[in-house]
């Protein structure tokens, strides 16, 4: 069962996730000017919202995380040594 956690301190209330989600999982909370989850059962964990969120304010828990074989491990290793 998917669970979505919104970091309200980080959310800037831009509404990008509300517009981008194909299943209308999010809505704007007009009083707080933050996004809120309204249709959790319809989330298919495509993670388009993650990609579009400028504040990285959301976390999806207990989902199928797709393989990322495109990541170059040697580059990652080199970056880890620098950062």
């Amino acid at each position: 069962m998917v669970n979505i956690v919104i970091d309200e301190d980080a959310c800037v209330g831009c509404g990008s996730c509300v517009e981008d989600c194909p299943n209308d999982v999010y809505e704007m909370d007009e009083t707080k000017n933050k996004t809120k989850v309204v249709k959790l059962d319809d989330c298919m964990a495509c993670l388009s919202c993650h990609e579009i969120c400028p504040a990285q304010a959301m976390e999806h828990q207990d989902i199928h995380v797709a393989k990322r074989l495109y990541i170059d491990r040697k580059v990652n290793y080199a970056l880890e040594r620098i950062i």
Binding site: C46, L47, H64, V65
Partner: peptide, 10 residues
Amino acid sequence: IDHVGPNACL
């Protein structure tokens, strides 16, 4: 195609 995303496509 209904939707494409970085983790799944419908």
